[in-house]
Write a protein that binds this DNA or RNA. Structure first.
Lengths: 251, 251
DNA sequence: AAGAGGCTTCCAGTGAGTGAAAAGGCCGTG
DNA sequence: CACGGCCTTTTCACTCACTGGAAGCCTCTT
């Protein structure tokens, strides 16, 4: 469907970039987007003219500032971000651990903001990156408060295993989700890598809907996750309150 | 030129959104992008399918997470951001003033990151927003280190006045820029609003080029800008060093 | 000099894109 | 309950913007 429309070609060009390929030549661009070279050339030129792409040196393209500007207008990401950052900083100062903020997009989660502790466990995630809902603290929180049909789709779909700790059994996942709802926060122990455990709590918007999840990621060995939960909950509530009273400075 | 291409229509649709209009109906979209309603409908549908737009409720569109994700890959904004945030936080903790980070894009500057002091002077700027180069601390720094042809274009163009303090005389601006280069930092007193003064310093990338500028914005009355310059310079140097040694965690 | 690889331009054919107009929804109001 | 207004969605026939192959161009290598 629509595999040959101009729009899909333009979007394919933009989608050709990823975290590992922030600069591409025209031919790489054409190859990755699966469009002919002359067409890639024309579309790329139009994108450059508008500022969605930038030419760097001779023959290399990268995502342009104008596109980033437009992306910054996505209400679910940067709006949330503005409200959340101060509380995430507080959380970081108290715990000195990686602090993460994520939202759900369909059957995945997207990391919206992160404070990387300079001496904390290195995490694999990246702001703007996607991940499965069943294998992180934030994922469990977001999934636990997602509409039933979303939960069913995730439970029915494949649940990739990352470590021995990853929850891949639908029944067990169901029980864990119920627990998360009841307890108010999620603890995900060694579900993604063996040395990381995370504690996550839901952020609610003005209507009471769960709009995001905050978490801290701690060393599995030294972890006393349950002791850290109150801090995460406090941060989550702070963000929820800030969200409820509208974004701090929209203008 | 190209005013009727599909690409330009797609981009016009995205450009229809701004800080004051984060959600638009189809007719607003069509009107603001200046394209016919059926076309807006078709293009918007394609954008939604890809995730560049999202439909919210019935008949309202907003920028989608996928577009934000792609925008997050712009090397000049979020890459810089990751390197800069820790140092900006340090600067905020020491000074308790608004901390801003901006890059130059052609003849304007774009704010890339901001830490809004909770008790500091309210600033009009917004992450993702644009501004003139001649009327802020960061602008003066970026302009002072811009290629000569850029400087000439700015000096030749109109220099809007915001307050009595705005520098609108080309000759005076030229002198100020020389001073900024020599001194290593810029002080912009009441150039945008009467109660804000900013102190800015250049951030250099691995090659020594000025890639960005950091600044703090202080109350004009209580300001002793020169005393704050060392802090700003320290932060700028820290960011420069972090930039030079590559992004902290690209993966 | 000749070759290789990538970028850019040219060309004629064609189907994706176009706007007008009509149909379909979704309200409030008389 | 029918009416009118407003917005969204679909239909339709026309046409021009888009297409890929091929040829030209540039730059760096052998």
């Amino acid at each position: 469907m629509g595999g040959t429309s101009v729009t899909s070609k333009v979007l394919a060009l933009l989608a050709a970039f990823d975290a590992g390929h922030r600069e591409l030549t025209l031919s790489e661009l054409a190859r990755r987007a699966d469009i002919s070279l002359p067409t890639a050339h024309r579309r790329a030129a139009e994108l450059v003219e508008w500022g969605a792409l930038e030419r760097v040196g001779s023959g290399r393209y990268r995502i342009g500032l104008r596109l980033w500007e437009v992306g910054s207008l996505a209400p679910r990401a940067p709006g949330l971000r503005e409200s959340a950052l101060p509380f995430m900083e507080d959380l970081y100062v108290v715990t000195r651990q990686n602090v993460q903020l994520a939202v759900r997009d369909d059957l995945e989660l997207v990391f919206v903001e992160r404070i990387a502790g300079r001496h904390a466990v290195p995490v694999l995630t990246r702001v703007g990156g996607r991940f499965h809902l069943h294998a992180t603290g934030v994922g469990l929180v977001l999934l636990a408060h997602a509409p039933p049909e979303i939960q069913e789709q995730v439970l029915a779909g494949p649940l990739p295993r990352y470590t021995a700790g990853t929850i891949v059994e639908p029944d067990r996942l169901r029980r864990v989700l119920a627990e998360v709802r009841q307890r108010g926060y999620a603890v995900s122990e060694q579900a993604v890598t063996d040395d990381a455990t995370s504690v996550a709590a839901p952020v609610r918007d003005g209507t009471g809907e769960v709009a995001a999840a905050v978490s801290i990621v701690v060393q599995s060995r030294s972890a006393r996750p349950r002791e850290l939960a109150p801090y995460v909950l406090t941060a989550a509530q702070g963000i929820s309150r800030a969200l409820g009273s509208g974004p701090p400075s929209s203008e």
